[in-house]
Amino acid sequence: MFSIGEFARLGLVSVRMLRHYDAIGLLRPAHVDPVSGYRSYQAAQLSRLNRIVAVKDLGFTLEQVRAILDDKVSTEELHGMVRMRRAQLEARINTDLARLRSVEARLRTIETEGYMESAEVVLKRVAPIRVAELSARAASYEGEDIGPVIQPLFAEICRRVEEAAVKVVGPGVAYYEERDDGSVMVHACLPVSAAPGHHDFQVLDLPAIETAATIIHHGSMEEVGKTFQTLAHWIEEHGYRSRALAREVSLHCPENPDEWVTELQIEVTPAG
């Protein structure tokens, strides 16, 4: 048998933690001296200790740990819990990284304030266009919610259109519709000349935009804030109001997002 100090060193935990586990009945010593109160442990108890620490580190409370261990969770089940927890942590990390990139992009937008070039904006009519389309809902119009939705949508619509042998006749288009609950319907579209038959995607005609304020954005869409800022200044200075969320036309979309070229199109009407 091992003293509490020895057992703590062998189990890679603190003596204080073992005392706490004893106090709450999660891991009792194999023997407690009735006179001195010294705790002693057996090597076989390392198995339960390892499970306690593993399950606790997955984010469960000690009460939940007790319930899980009382159900005699197997090693295979522990591996399954680890895989699930890893997926949750990776998703959280990706979300936090996306939020950080969004904040950094917002700061870069702030740095460009006062240096807006409104001459880049072109007012024009956008013709109607027939598209193959897939749609999905995003929690909001913020970049960290839109990106994880629009990117897989475009990959999927490209795959389905190719499998259907439907000819694509122009660059991809994304457009968005706001919902009353604050969420946004995200639409990923590919212009097509025709698409006879039944498909696992929608074919519809996007209506014309009679008056659109348009601007070319160069680079990743994470950096689009400063381009929208330029567009907003132009719309206000020229006496217009925006009527909907922007359409995004992917004019050039290589693997490197920093080399993307995207046209933003916002429907506008005269103010007042």
Rank of each mutant, 00 (worst) to 15 (best):
Q42D: 02
T227F: 11
E162K: 10
A271V: 08
E90Q: 12
A271H: 08
T112R: 14
P257C: 15
A212Y: 02
R39W: 05
R86H: 10
G182C: 06
P270K: 09
A213Y: 02
H199L: 11
P270I: 10
Y115E: 12
P196I: 12
M17R: 01
Y240L: 13
M84Y: 12
H233Y: 14
I93G: 08
E63D: 15
P171Y: 12
A194E: 09
Q64C: 04
G239L: 11
L26P: 01
R159C: 08
Q151C: 11
E120M: 14
T109G: 12
A132V: 09
E263L: 14
D181S: 02
I146R: 04
R48V: 01
M81A: 07
A30E: 04
V169A: 11
F201I: 07
R159P: 05
P29G: 06
V103C: 06
R86K: 10
E178R: 05
T75S: 09
T61C: 02
P128V: 08
P171V: 13
L46P: 01
S183E: 01
L245F: 14
H252D: 03
M185T: 06
V35H: 04
Q42F: 01
P29Y: 04
P196F: 12
Q202Y: 03
L123C: 10
L206Q: 09
C253P: 00
K124H: 05
Q202L: 13
E248P: 00
I150M: 00
R16Q: 15
D145C: 10
K56Q: 00
E77Q: 15
R99Q: 14
E210P: 03
E178L: 07
E223K: 11
Q45V: 05
V168T: 11
E156D: 15
